[in-house]
Amino acid sequence: MTAAYSWFWGNIISSRDSLMQLTGGGVQAETLLLEAGYKQKIYALIRAKGTPFNNHKTIWDSDVYPKHAVIGLLASQNKLPTIDNISTRGMVMVNRCSLCERQPESVAHLFFECQFSQVVWQDIST
C-alpha cells in the first residue's frame, strides 16, 4: 500500500485481500458475495476464534461498578484502547507507557508489569 491511499481505502483493499485469502481466491470470494446471507458467512470467516470468556459471573457481579466491569471485560479480550492496540489499526504512535514511559503500553504491561500498577496491586493486597 502506498502513501497515496487514504486510511479508508487502505482498509478496503486490505479487507478485499484478506477475504480472497480466506476463501481461496477471487472467484470463490465473488461467489460468496453473491450468496444469500453473505455478511454472516464473511463474519464467520474473519472473526477471531479464541478461547471463550467464561468469567462473566466475576465481572458482572452485582457488587462491581458497571464501569469497572466494562474495563475488565475489554481487558480480558485485549480490546482496551492501549497504544499497541491502536497502532494495529493503522495509527502510527510512539508506543511508550503513559505512566512509566519505559516500556511499550499494552494491557499486560498496564495491569501487571508497570511499576505503578505493581504499587497499586501491593496496596490492594495488604
Rank of each mutant, 00 (worst) to 15 (best):
K41I: 00
I13S: 04
D17L: 09
L99D: 03
V27D: 10
E113M: 06
H109V: 12
Y38F: 13
M1I: 13
V92Y: 03
N78H: 09
H109S: 10
V94A: 08
N11E: 09
Q28A: 15
V94K: 06
S6G: 09
R16Y: 10
S98W: 12
C97T: 04
S106D: 04
V107Q: 07
S106G: 05
K79F: 04
I71F: 07
A69W: 01
Q40C: 10
A69D: 03
Q21F: 08
H56G: 15
C114F: 00
I86M: 05
L19P: 00
L110Q: 02
G90N: 07
A69H: 05
Q28F: 08
D61R: 08
M20V: 14
A44F: 01
H56W: 12
R16P: 03
L110G: 00
V70K: 04
S6H: 03
K57Q: 07
L32C: 04
I124Q: 03
L32P: 02
S14N: 12
V92G: 02
Q21G: 12
R96H: 09
D17H: 06
V120I: 14
F116P: 11
F53P: 03
E30D: 13
P104W: 01
G26M: 13
Q40M: 12
E30G: 09
A108C: 12
D84N: 06
A29S: 06
P52Y: 00
Y43V: 15
Q122E: 13
Q40F: 07
S117P: 03
I46N: 05
K41N: 01
R89E: 02
I59C: 02
V70S: 08
Q122C: 12
C114E: 01
N95Q: 05
S106E: 03
S18G: 08
N85K: 04
S14F: 06
F8M: 14
G24T: 01
S106I: 01
R47V: 01
S117Y: 01
S14A: 14
H56I: 15
Q77C: 15
S62I: 13
L33N: 06
R102E: 15
P52W: 00
C97R: 02
Q115M: 09
Y65A: 15
N95V: 02
I124M: 07
T58W: 10
L34H: 07
N85H: 00
A29M: 04
P52L: 09
I86F: 02
S87Q: 15
A108R: 13
K39S: 10
S87P: 05
R102Q: 15
G90W: 06
G72M: 01
A75I: 02
T2H: 06
R102L: 15
F112E: 03
T51Y: 07
R102G: 09
Y5I: 11
Y65F: 11
K49P: 03
N85E: 04
D63N: 14
G37H: 04
N78L: 11
K67V: 11
